[in-house]
Design a protein around this nucleic acid. Structure first.
Lengths: 343, 343
DNA sequence: ACGGATTGCGCAAACGATTGCATTTATTTA
DNA sequence: TAAATAAATGCAATCGTTTGCGCAATCCGT
């Protein structure tokens, strides 16, 4: 039974002996159609649960009306922060009558370009994107903009483009967290950060540095490392803890890294938080699972996603000027748990 | 500069002084157009990077060709297992030239119905769905089927519908895990399961029961609880551990619950795994974060997603018979870590 | 050199909806 | 009673592509 073909206005028109134009006007409640006819048509449509063919509507309006499909490009899907952001985007979008098309770049530039093209072809009304790690050319993004597809970046923004963006307040988040560590008595605070070519990495480092300065401390290069995952953390931390002047606290660029530090530090027989404090960044699933639970900077991915969708929809609907880039910063929040000393 | 309007065949036709029909045929390499014209048109199109308007194509073909948009309904997005599944679906879909439209039901029946309608309107070629927890009516699913939109369930299948589905081998997964617990010397194994109206809950319980039987043990009702989250686990476990005949092992329906048990058991001063073994189900982020690391049943969400997408695409493209429901079971794998004794 | 086959292309009708304009009929006004 | 006005509907073009059919022009064989 492939009677899957749906009822169209033509069907209604034929059945009721009127023209398609009349049906169209009646269904849009045009006053130029007589009351009785209008109601008859509406009732018939309702009873046979007619609904308009979006494809046809879109074709008709393609000149002036964008679709209601938002493209979302995400580097990975199995990832707490990106999931949260996706969640925020989905909520905001669906609240406002949009739907989302999701694609993952797998951190690949090539794939990112393909996805942009495909989304352009599929006529999304705009794209929300976090760049792949190995993206260093931006033609595909420029191409989209020139095709009239608005773009909003989140998390990994494109520094070369003056595009709209939503990021987390990495600087203040780190600054506050490190200040807290200092205020609870830590003096030698190690910093495990991401490679410095990423904007977020730089901002977090600056927050760390300025927190030290503010409290009359200085950056000890021996305590700063490039390290943003658990495996690396487990590899480099033992040496760190065997220095004559070992750190009494760690600030890590994400929870995963912090967990790596924690596991090593515990294994080496130190007490957390009495001997060593540890602070992460994310506040994902992991933070409440480790023992003791992780003190960390809440990244509020869902809020980031909502803001990004809000900007994009504003751009699409014209309530935001298309020429000026809208930049929003989502405040972070320090969540104090068991891996840091009490004041 | 809203020169966002794209080049159409009409533009090419006008420019090259031919008819639109000729352009169309030339671009589809029809031999009925002369070699030179064909190449001229193709070159012009390439140079001005023309690409066809999908909306128009779809309208034209709507009678016979489905779109290449797969609808995916997910109860939550910030959830390890569902993320993995989404990841699998995305991979398979994009490999085969489809894109995915993602919506979350928030575990709400109402929302699920809305989403189904919206997806129907937006002319997805099929839907992959895991039911919301409070869905107990299925008209919306039936409605889709009768509209010719194929449906594939994953994880939470619809028992009342004989629809295609992909599930994990809950029975064998649990059976093997519990057998392992027994073989490592556990005798009183508690079972924390989900409410029994969910199919997966029943299957896991059966696996538990049969593993006991197989080893000459019997089910002790006092050791079976409805509990599928951390908060509940932390609430009910202390009493469990204070029974005169306390359990020497726990099998939990998911990692989250297992973590709850672990934290309580440790807090009460028991040693894991010497005094108490614990086994979870999922193998998500959490499993390697807790201390000791969690022994758990790997659920292979990504594989589930891939299979689901494979079935759906098969249904859409007609390589799978539309009348017979395709049912696949993804094998699980026991991942032994630190919360269980060694053999 | 003429009839038939072949080649190359355009016309026009679809797909399903919208909308300016023309047309018909009914009603009012002078 | 004729003319002007208003009310209700239909015609046909449009969005961008595809495709059956027909029309010319060229080719071939005899």
């Amino acid at each position: 039974m492939d009677n899957s073909r749906h009822m169209t206005m033509k069907d209604i028109a034929r059945e009721l002996g009127v023209s398609v134009a009349t049906v169209s006007r009646a269904l849009s409640d045009s006053p130029s159609i007589s009351r009785e006819r209008r109601q008859a048509i509406q009732q018939y449509a309702r009873e046979h649960n007619y609904f308009p063919n979006v494809i046809a509507e879109q074709l008709r309006h393609s000149r002036h009306n964008p679709t209601r499909a938002i493209g979302v490009i995400v580097p990975e899907l199995v990832h707490y922060y990106f999931s949260s952001i996706l969640d925020g985007i989905e909520s905001e979008a669906s609240d406002r009558g949009y739907h989302i098309i999701v694609a993952k770049s797998n951190e690949s530039y090539e794939r990112e370009v393909q996805i942009c093209e495909a989304m352009l072809k599929n006529k999304v009304c705009g794209i929300i994107v976090s760049q792949a790690k190995d993206t260093e050319q931006y033609d595909h993004f420029l191409h989209l903009e020139s095709a009239g597809v608005p773009l909003v970046f989140y998390d990994r923004i494109c520094p070369a483009l003056n595009a709209s963006r939503v990021v987390v307040d990495d600087y203040m988040g780190t600054m506050n967290a490190v200040s807290y560590l200092i205020e609870t008595g830590c003096k030698r605070i190690a910093f495990y950060g991401a490679p410095m070519n990423m904007v977020i990495a730089k901002n977090r480092f600056n927050g760390y540095r300025d927190a030290l300065y503010k409290h009359g401390l200085t950056v000890d290069e021996g305590l700063v490392r490039i390290c943003d995952n658990r495996a690396d953390a487990e590899r480099i931390t033992p040496a760190m803890m065997q220095m004559e002047n070992r750190p009494d606290a760690f600030f890590a660029v994400n929870d995963e890294t912090a967990i790596g530090i924690l596991s090593v530090v515990k294994r080496l027989g130190f007490n957390v938080p009495d001997d060593v404090s540890i602070c992460g960044f994310t506040n994902g699933f992991r933070a409440t699972v480790c023992d003791p639970m992780l003190t960390t900077v809440e990244q509020r991915g869902s809020q980031v996603g909502k803001e990004a969708a809000d900007i994009l929809i504003g751009l699409v609907e014209g309530t935001l000027p298309p020429d000026r880039a809208e930049k929003r910063i989502v405040k972070t929040r320090l969540v104090v748990r068991g891996t840091t000393r009490h004041p």
